[in-house]
Design a protein around this nucleic acid. Structure first.
Length: 494
RNA sequence: GGUCCCAUCGUCUAGCGGUCUAGGACGUCGGCCUCUCACGCCGAAAACAGGGGUUCGAGUCCCCUUGGGACCGCCA
């Protein structure tokens, strides 16, 4: 049994978007599952639209996601001469022919066909041009493209799609497609097949938008006397209005980078993306890398397109709620040391990092992260709602300020008074702080909740958070006292 | 318009002829917990597009209709 070999062939015309990432993930999983190889091949044949930034962006995105490859990146443009040679061979063998029809003629015919409600198919005008006639036209300087000569056969050509099942098409319905431009540059259809043959690709996993290409490429494999790979066409990812997702119409919310910037854990994104159009027959939805590779199979890919359920402008869910929920799941469940690594990057970027978090205050740092992570959804929350644990200049949530502090005039004096008492505490523990706070509330004749919520907001700026005594211990006596003493200034500002 | 693909809760999906009064997850709503929120736990509302067949029996097989999508480039 020969080696399993797959490829991910992005065209570098933009950033890596979630559709492309999903394709990469599926190919990667299949390769890993079967001990095969994944080849990264940049399809930059269309030089005008390919950019260096895009290539870097794609590679950067794959690396971030943790999708590793075994060969490449290869660049399709480097094999241009091979593509040309193959086209020439096809021409010489009579499997392709020169077509001198002009673009204008073809456009006119296409329009006419559309009007007459006929299939928009090349009519084969140049198919039977004699060699002499062709040479004469070429010598006269008429530009020409090269078209593949679809065999004149009855019946169907087809293949067994690993997702869709048997797919067939009648030979007579396939047009003589162009394989080389008039400027001599071969087109995708040909290059792709030539490269796949050279790279010994055994399995092609790609989007269903390539289905019509597959039939034509099958013809190419046959003409080149090469075995065709196994094909599996994945369902497409649609937007909530059921339109195909594209960089152009959907912008950043469909780019992989966007999720990095929004505080996603790379594996959480992978886990979410793989669930879009694939499943196991048990109810599992959370997979470690090893579990996912083990569980993955082509049979689990659905036939139907799936909707990426994001709603632009939604204040609560900036992307698919399920993606957010999976990210939150990982944030509160991965080993705390691993999480600390991600948070460190965020802190460094936000200017919140302190070297002691890796040194003498490591334990405090880890336990504090562990305490606050259960109510966080993205890495950004650690520098946002979690800021008060790591910096003195933290913002106050407006609603929290109103509800927990400003609404109660009494707190203006109560909290500073409490601060004076707390300052004298010789021990700063869960027990001592709780006793002090509850004792104080009792003596003052107010409900403990009033004081507790006031402390929460004064000390963290937040409406919600962990148990207040855990919070107080985490933030520390000195800072808690100071923040409580500053409460009166909050009334002035408001 | 032509060709092709698809069709279960709002979304992702389980279901491969009887165990389906259709299961799970996310989201939504209610409850428990409680100093708040979250986590966790418990519970609720929520779907087989429609019509014909086949069969003792259909969400599951076939056909039609409807709906959605892709492709129809000298882009990839």
């Amino acid at each position: 049994m020969s080696e399993v070999r797959l490829r991910f062939p992005p065209s570098p015309t933009g950033y890596l978007h979630i559709g492309g990432a999903r394709t990469a993930i599926f190919n990667w999983l299949f390769a890993r599952k079967h001990g095969g190889k994944l080849i990264l091949r940049i399809e930059d044949t269309d030089a005008e639209r390919s950019t260096k930034e895009s290539i870097e962006g794609i590679i950067d995105g794959l690396v971030w996601l943790g999708i590793d490859w075994d060969e490449g990146p290869y660049f399709q443009s480097e094999f241009a001469s091979e593509h040309v040679a193959v086209a020439r061979r096809l021409l010489e063998e009579g499997k392709a022919y020169r077509c001198f029809c002009t673009k204008e003629e073809l456009d006119a015919k296409r329009e006419a066909a559309l009007k007459a409600k006929r299939d928009i198919k090349y009519d084969g005008t140049c198919r039977n041009l004699s060699k002499e006639e062709g040479d004469r036209l070429e010598a006269s300087g008429r530009p020409n493209v090269i078209r593949f000569k679809v065999p004149e056969r009855d019946g169907f050509i087809g293949y067994d799609d690993k997702v869709l099942g048997r797919i067939e098409k009648h030979y007579s319905e396939i047009e003589d497609f162009v394989i080389v431009r008039s400027n001599g540059r071969p087109l995708y259809l040909l290059c792709n097949v030539v490269d796949d043959i050279r790279d010994r690709i055994t399995h092609v996993i790609r989007g269903q938008d390539h289905m019509t290409n597959t039939i034509r490429q099958l013809l190419l494999y046959e003409a080149l006397d090469a075995p065709a790979p196994v094909f599996a066409h994945m369902p497409l990812t649609l937007d909530p209005k059921k339109r195909k997702i594209s960089k152009r119409t959907h912008g950043e919310v469909v780019s992989v980078q966007f999720y990095r910037e929004k505080g996603f854990l790379p594996w959480a994104l992978v886990n979410f993306l793989v669930l879009l159009g694939w499943h196991t027959s048990d109810d599992r939805e959370i997979f470690s890398k090893e579990e996912l590779i083990e569980a993955f199979s082509l049979e689990g890919i659905s036939k139907a397109n799936s909707v990426f359920n994001f709603h632009p402008g939604d204040p609560k869910f900036f992307t698919d709620p399920k993606a957010l929920s999976i990210n939150a799941h990982y944030i509160r469940n991965i080993p705390i040391e691993e999480l600390a690594g991600y948070v460190e990057k965020e802190f460094r970027a936000a200017g919140l990092w302190d070297d002691s978090y890796a040194g003498e205050r490591r334990q405090w740092f880890l336990s504090t992260l562990d305490m606050i992570r259960t109510r966080f959804h993205t890495l950004k929350d650690f520098v946002g709602p979690g800021r008060a644990y790591f910096a003195d200049d933290f913002p106050f949530d407006e609603k929290a300020l109103r509800k927990n502090i400003l609404k109660h005039d009494s707190l203006k004096e109560l909290l500073p008074t409490l601060a004076n008492e707390l300052e004298l505490l010789e021990e700063w523990t869960l027990e001592s702080t709780e006793a002090a706070v509850r004792g104080f509330a009792e003596r003052m004749g107010v409900k403990a909740g009033l004081i507790i919520n006031g402390i929460r907001t004064a000390v963290t700026g937040q409406l919600k958070g962990a148990g207040i005594f855990d919070v107080m211990v985490a933030i520390g006596q000195e800072r808690v006292v100071r923040r409580l003493k500053e409460v009166p200034s909050l009334y002035e500002a408001g």
